[in-house]
Design a protein around this nucleic acid. Structure first.
Lengths: 114, 114
DNA sequence: AAAATATACTTAGATGTTCTATGTATAAAT
DNA sequence: ATTTATACATAGAACATCTAAGTATATTTT
């Protein structure tokens, strides 16, 4: 099953910063990695992802550099910054609280998660 | 802490249908109930909630009726429909998968949820 | 009694975000 | 040689939410 786009929307930045906190990655690689890890539940298109990466860079959460890897292709790698790591921590706390709160609100419902 | 609006956005319909699956409620009551259950983490404004209720009604997920309760004030109660309950089930499955997938993606990160 | 606050619903328009669609270009596979 | 996968980019469309304002009644405070 594919997940409704506007569920994912709010957590895009969390996902991106979490991945880049592991290692530097380039855009296309991020798309493939997210697909793989989520068993295809999350699917980003380039037109959706790249503008977000640019926004992250404008906000100072990541910086980028060009590099040519083992292949001949030139790639734009993104690297998380100190400010980005701080933001990541904030986003993780937000996610934990959000997830908890949803369960609280649905908790009153007798057959939630039935 | 208050939760970032665009995290909540994607799950608004899930929350509303889950509440209305418990009992009929009117708009203002829904706002207060969500605040209470989430310990103020979720805060909807009227201008955000009412249009969503109207959309739910247009989609046939809820129907509404006017009623004057114990007070003299006239209120518009919303009631979930059969179609709405079907949608609720779908939204719950989506939420479960979404929540799981986020954890999968973040799972690779050494200090996720640290 | 008057004023202020809480309750209750509504909508127009601004804002913001994502998606579609399209373009460019190279490397690998058929 | 042609197709597919890789790789980045952006304009404009489409969509959703929020702000702000308006209306009206009931309750509480002064």
């Amino acid at each position: 099953m594919k997940i409704d786009k506007n569920l994912i929307g709010g957590s895009t930045i969390l996902i991106l910063l979490a991945l880049l906190d592991e290692k530097d990655m380039y855009g296309y690689q991020i798309i493939k990695e997210i697909e793989k890890r989520s068993d295809e539940a999350f699917q980003f298109r380039e037109g959706s992802l790249y503008p977000v990466l640019h926004k992250l860079q404008n906000n100072g959460y990541v910086k980028s550099y060009m590099a040519t890897g083992d292949t001949g292709k030139s790639r734009k790698y993104y690297q998380i910054t100190k400010k980005g790591r701080k933001q990541l921590k904030e986003e993780q706390e937000q996610w934990n609280l959000f997830s908890l709160s949803i369960n609280k609100v649905l908790g009153g419902s007798a057959n939630a998660f039935s």
